[in-house]
Amino acid sequence: MITRRTFTSAAAFMAAGVAAPSLWAQGKPEKTKLAIAVGGKAAFYYLPLTISEQLGYFKAEGLDVEISDFAGGARALQALVGGSADVVSGAYEHTINMQSKGQMIQSIVLQGRAPQIAVGVSTKNMANYKTLADLKGKKIGVSAPGSSTNMVANLILSRGGLKASDVSFVGVGTSAGALAALRSGQIDAMSNTDPVMTMLEQKGDVKIISDTRTLKGTQEVFGGNMPAACLYTSAEFVQKNPNTCQALANAIVHGLKWLQTAGPSDIIKTVPDNYLLGDRALYLASFNKIREAISLDGMMNEEGARTALKALASFDPAIKADKIELSKTYTNDFARKAKDRFKA
């Protein structure tokens, strides 16, 4: 398992110039039984993970994967740092945040090429909403404090001249609990993923004020491509377990390839029933909205990594853009081989 000591020694591994993973010959995974942490697995944000799991793609690569679902990405990250998880299916920007704290983690395969996060205000609690300044003093629901949904909310608030301390963030998860929190009036606004946000939008419960569920919307909010979900782990784990990382990338890219041609009925048959949140039609409407946000081949875009760093640095003074080595936050070595294998 990964420990806090692992992270501090990871920098030494990289500084020592250990051979890049692409130089290793492929073979049997060094570690076959893996614990993967995820924050809000039912969200479309993590659909590639669910597809690869449900269709047996991890098993096909010789991996015995146990996936633990947490309330949000920040808690999944804590599982990695604390040693109860080997790998996280989570937001890419955590790799930048952790490097700013001297802890090296690395993305090994991308799942989403747009954040798929929308911010909306309650039409019940904030019927007279006009500008971002109106959010001051309000309660904003996020999947979990410190998660990607929280980061996007922080960015949007900063553009309205507000700081994170000007509002109260409330963890509501990414499924039925999030719907209930907004509809019951417990929160005044929400930053969350689909299918939750589309369901609230379609029922008239929220007014969307910022939207990154499409590539166009992502460009408008971030000014460029913005990577989203990925599989990430400690830099040391990557160095010690290249075949395992390749197997993980293979499984995810296999799922991404399947998603390229999957129809609505294929999705419905594959995901667990409780993911539909009781509304099959709206679930499929949500899927159609975010479909283009799913990565095609698992490859990280360099421009996207720069956009993520710029966005984080714009509202978090602890992140110094000139101190971050983006090349150490991700590797495309595994995804590139998987892309070639599956013709993704």
Rank of each mutant, 00 (worst) to 15 (best):
M199P: 01
I108S: 00
Q111N: 05
M190H: 02
D205G: 00
I187Y: 05
S191I: 07
A181T: 04
M126V: 05
L110A: 01
Q116M: 14
M151V: 12
V87P: 05
M190C: 10
A133I: 00
M104T: 03
K163Q: 12
M126H: 10
M197A: 10
G83N: 13
L135G: 05
M151E: 13
G161R: 03
Q103G: 04
Y129M: 04
A178R: 03
D166K: 00
G112L: 05
N128R: 10
V172D: 02
N150P: 04
G146V: 12
L110G: 00
D86Q: 09
G102Y: 12
H94D: 14
G171C: 10
Q116H: 02
R113M: 11
L162V: 06
Q78A: 15
S158A: 10
Y92F: 15
S184D: 15
V172H: 04
S122P: 03
K124C: 04
S191R: 07
I67N: 06
K138P: 11
T123N: 11
A85F: 01
V170R: 01
A118N: 02
P195V: 12
M151C: 02
R159C: 04
Q103C: 07
S100E: 07
G120P: 00
F169A: 04
V87S: 08
G161F: 10
A164Q: 13
D194T: 05
M197V: 11
P145K: 13
Q186G: 03
G102V: 14
A118K: 03
N125M: 12
A164C: 01
A76G: 14
A71D: 13
N192G: 09
S89N: 13
L200Q: 02
S191G: 09
S147C: 12
Y129G: 01
A114G: 07
R75L: 15
A189C: 08
S89I: 07
T123S: 10
N192W: 10
M104N: 07
S143K: 02
L182M: 15
L200T: 13
G160C: 06
L110M: 09
T149P: 12
A164H: 08
I117V: 14
S148L: 07
A176V: 15
T174P: 10
I96R: 06
N192R: 03
S84G: 08
T174E: 03
M151I: 13
S84P: 01
M98N: 14
N128I: 04
I108P: 04
Q116F: 02
S147D: 14
G171V: 09
S84C: 07
G141S: 11
F70S: 08
A114I: 11
L200M: 08
A133D: 11
G73A: 08
K130P: 01
A164W: 01
H94N: 14
A153Q: 00
S107A: 15
H94T: 15
D86N: 14
V152P: 00
G73F: 06
L157S: 02
V119F: 12
K139T: 04
M199Q: 08
A85R: 01
S165L: 11
S107T: 08
Y129V: 01
E201R: 11
S191P: 03
V196G: 02
D134N: 13
